[in-house]
Design a protein around this nucleic acid. Structure first.
Lengths: 336, 336
DNA sequence: CTGTTAGCGCTTTCAC
DNA sequence: GTGAAAGCGCTAACAG
């Protein structure tokens, strides 16, 4: 078992003190050129690399970001993670990734686990349970310890910290406006993620869009049981004379397309469909889904950037802010 | 700025020595019941948690696994990551995730970064570039440092370490056999991932399946330009009298379904379709895709399990082995 | 220019 | 039953 080489060993072999070796490796001008060269040569020979743990213990910085995600099988979060990873690595940070599977208990456990000097800061999207329970003591504890947090997408007012979100309400409003502009009159809003803050905002936006126009009907469908998504949507489409659907989540939109095929409705001739979040499903649906793109990777990159800024130049009385990443309506084949 | 509480502070406040406090917290029988209780009370009061870095530095264990993935936007890897995360967290390990984006340089960089005592072991799937360059010095270095590695899916013979793979060739053979059993005669094999070892194996398997039966034609289509996937597949389906398609990757299968809609072919009446890897696309296609399931989450869980076994009970002359995770054909609506 | 020393927070052996 | 001391690997203030 080859042991990893340390300063101590280099020092012994070179007949120097540990601190001289340490300084030489940092090209400290106090040290003579000759010594610096000798030290570097031996260090290279042994492929010496400082022990990250020791450096962290000393400096009280780990150069690591804790990322807490509700899910990873959801393409949106995978994209955000990608954005975070890219930006973090560009800035010399690593990320440790935790997946709560929408569980409050897991979220608490992970936050506590990582808060014992394992990470310098957190990037978090709240689990569904946490949002429902409305309990945030674990984050308040972080605040008290002065550990920077950045929340994205699923955020809460209860915690004062930087946030990166998209303006879901406005985006939804714009989507419904688009449907109305193309002549749709009976617009359905279908959600399979009821309870999430984003779902509420998207519904509000849709309502706002139709508020001033009494020619338009807005019909809501919220499905909670994940086993009956398809049946419910099929029944719903069959029983209501819908000419447009806004899928509050990508799944809802994808299933709407599939059930329309099944019922023989043509898209977009009979029904126009728009889905939130442009993931794989939208790209490979037939016809291709018009989506509200959330620019997930931008969200991740922005979150990492905001956090790293805080970590790298610490300011005592930091004023937290909310970044709003723009959405855009990507028109594809499922709308007129 | 509230500082995190340490043993030292507890000791001072309790008028005890640091070591007594440390032992008390571990309920060391040397220490009197009374003291143990006093210590625990104050520790709870301050919500004391040992500093993970110090513990790691001392014990030379970080309880952290480095995970190196080529991609995360690919659902297969997201699922594997999920499996790894689940299993690791169950065993008390955290994971730090690095994404190489198929780049050799990034892979080397990440491996070196994490090897300075940041992680206890690695779970790796090779980047495409690394497979092409066939350079593995960075992993050989790890072996020399006696750092355990587990590779999955994209593996190499060059490195002796535990591996977790699926038997792609056999799986492909089984899929084609199934198509033949249901009466298909002109079977297409379509790939958009030519060059990866798995693609080769899957093609081989398909060839093997038809080898003994000269009633069956196997027609291959390999598409390299990602901009023309759809056009190529549409043209191909239109020009060849195909009655079955094996998609070597999920995308190929999904697009086949979509183009069949476009051309007016009924699935599975006119064309049966099977896709490799059962991701989101398969689940939300219409009709639902019959797939070769790779049990990605099992792969991840197995990899984590194998690695943790090695980490938790270290054996001097460990004999590395290759685990083969079973695939299965998940029959859905796109085949007869 | 180089070395000694103290200390980051913890564990553990060995005295008392 | 409790505490002193050494040490994990590194940095940095201070001596020489």
């Amino acid at each position: 078992m080859r042991k990893k080489v340390t300063l101590k060993q280099l020092a012994r072999e070179l007949n120097l003190s540990i601190s001289t070796v340490s300084k030489s490796l940092k090209n400290n001008p106090e040290i003579s050129k000759k010594t610096i060269i000798r030290v570097h040569e031996l260090a290279d020979f042994y492929n010496y690399k400082p022990n990250a743990l020791a450096v962290s213990l000393k400096s009280n910085k780990t150069k690591t970001i804790g990322v807490i995600l509700p899910e990873i099988l959801n393409h949106f979060f995978a994209k955000v993670l990608h954005g975070i990873e890219q930006e973090a690595s560009r800035k010399g940070y690593k990320i440790v990734t935790c997946i709560t599977n929408e569980s409050y208990d897991k979220e608490v456990e992970y936050v506590e686990m990582l808060n014992h000097s394992s990470v310098d800061g957190f990037i978090v999207s709240l689990s569904q349970e946490t949002q429902v329970f409305n309990k945030f003591e674990h984050f308040k504890k972080l605040k008290r310890d002065n550990v920077p947090i950045v929340m994205f997408d699923r955020v809460t007012e209860e915690i004062e910290c930087d946030k990166v979100i998209v303006d879901d309400k406005q985006a939804s409003e714009a989507a419904v406006n688009y449907l109305m502009d193309t002549g749709c009159k009976r617009i359905a809003v279908i959600t399979t993620i009821d309870g999430l803050s984003v779902a509420r905002l998207r519904l509000e936006g849709a309502k706002e869009a139709v508020a001033t126009n009494n020619q338009i009907s807005l019909i809501e469908l919220s499905i909670k049981d994940s086993d009956s998504f398809e049946i419910e949507i099929e029944k719903f489409l069959d029983n209501n004379d819908i000419d447009a659907v806004l899928g509050v989540d990508e799944k809802a939109a994808a299933i709407t397309i599939n059930m329309s095929h099944k019922l023989g409705y043509k898209i977009p001739k009979d029904i126009s469909v728009i889905g939130f979040t442009d993931g794989l499903l939208s790209k490979y649906s037939y016809p291709k889904l018009t989506t509200v793109s959330q620019h997930a990777e931008d969200i991740g990159a922005k979150a990492a950037q905001v956090l790293v800024n805080q970590l790298d130049d610490y300011v005592e009385n930091y004023e937290s802010k909310t970044e709003i990443v723009k959405t855009s309506l990507i028109l594809r084949d499922s709308t007129c």
